[in-house]
Amino acid sequence: MPKPKTNLILNSKPQSQITLSEYITAIAWSSNSKYLAAATASGEIVLIDEAKAGNDLAQKQTELQAPTEISVDCLGFSADGRWLAAGGQDGKVRVWDLAGAQPAIASTIDLGKTWIEHLVWHPTRSEFAFGLGKYVQVWSAETLDIVTTLHFEQSTVLAIAWHPSGDYLSVGGDGGIKVWAAQDWYEDPILFEMPTAAAKMVWNPSGEYLVASTLDNLVVVMQWLGKDFDASPWRMQGFPGKIRYFDWTASKTSPLLASSSGSDVVVWEKHADLNVGWEGEVIKGHNNIVGFVAFKPKTETLASADENGRIAIWKDAKDWVQALETPMGEITALQWQPQGKKLAAANADGQLMLWTESSQGKGFR
């Protein structure tokens, strides 16, 4: 393993942690960093109010939903932090209003027996999109009503991503990607065809590129030209296994893309020569499958986490700086606080952990 650097980015030990009832399936920060939410495989949903003083997460915690023994698999906050939505195996999407003195359930959307696995909020409006079999529905938290229902047609929806401008919604599944214009939901979507199913999709923060992985371990980076994709996307192959996660950084003129596959973390950068395309560099710090990669907001500091509980921190997306101390258990969620001062991680034993910025690491970019 690499030798640790003296300048740490985060304190090695968690500042605080709590243990929930089961395997933690999802975590989410609100954009203003006030709230951290977590959901479990037993249906438990908790809200942590980071505005409250102290490091005791138990004293900051509000239980939004007690364990139901039915998994909650996705959750997220609206852009303004007022609303929290969650969905899962019971076919219901629940929406909480956080504007009052206490969180209050605003709506429960009953969708029958459809498992809700994907839910993504609009980048500026209080609207969210979620997968519903072969359909995607867009809901408004303000009106508590449907905005539109989109038919993907080819297959069950496997991925959903809003363009950062909020003007387009991209949906992936068998046969490729469809992109609908929010200005006119009835207009035919743009279709980007693939020989197999698009499994994961992430727009870079400026909205210039969309990366997608397929079920046969192909990665495609498409350049967005404003109303359509460039006809010649970049294709990357040769990954050791399933693509588990992507993340982009917005800190450079040329964006960086991190991907995880097997025990490899690869950092991609677009070469100045268009004929070369995107070049990838493997950074080595894991011996187990890496489930998550996450750039600290507006920096090139990268966190990566694996199935053995190892979380590595990298400077400039290439230089190993430190490993965070965690219990030995699969990391099931990893997310930087939007302000970048804390890192949250969760594991298969129900532990939710928070690390804080080290005074040694201030000034690192």
Score class of each variant (00 low, 15 high):
Gln337Cys: 14
Gly88Ser: 07
Trp224Val: 14
Asp216Ile: 15
Ser21Asp: 14
Ala317Thr: 00
Lys34Trp: 08
Ala37Trp: 00
Val93Leu: 15
Gly91Ser: 09
Val179Met: 11
Phe128Met: 10
Val220Phe: 06
Ala231Pro: 04
Val276Ser: 07
Gly361His: 02
Leu343Ser: 05
Arg235Phe: 07
Asp230Lys: 12
Lys178Asp: 02
Ser16Arg: 08
Thr214Pro: 04
Leu10Thr: 03
Gly175Ala: 10
Thr301Gly: 00
Lys284Ala: 13
Met201Pro: 02
Gly329Ser: 13
Pro189Ala: 09
Ala161Ile: 02
Tyr245Gly: 03
Ala28Arg: 01
Gly238Asp: 13
Leu354Arg: 04
Leu343Ile: 09
Val95Thr: 13
Ile289Tyr: 05
Ile24Glu: 01
Ser33Val: 06
Phe128Leu: 09
Val120Leu: 01
Ile243Ala: 03
Ile70Ser: 11
Ile18His: 03
Leu111Cys: 12
Glu50Arg: 14
His151Trp: 10
Val157Arg: 02
Gly54Ala: 09
Ala182Gln: 12
Ser107Trp: 07
Leu132Met: 11
Pro205Asn: 05
Phe152Val: 12
Thr196Gly: 06
Leu352Arg: 02
Tyr168Lys: 05
Asp188Gly: 04
Val46Trp: 03
Pro123Ala: 13
Ala348Asp: 04
Glu193Gly: 08
Thr301Val: 05
Ala198Asp: 04
Trp96Ala: 15
Phe239Gln: 08
Phe130His: 12
Pro195Ala: 15
Ser165Tyr: 00
Lys178Met: 09
Asp184Arg: 10
Arg82Val: 09
Asn7Gly: 07
Tyr186Ile: 13
Phe246Ser: 02
Gln154Phe: 10
Gly100Gln: 10
Glu69Trp: 13
Gly100Ala: 15
Ile311Gly: 00
Lys134Pro: 06
Leu334Val: 00
Pro4Phe: 11
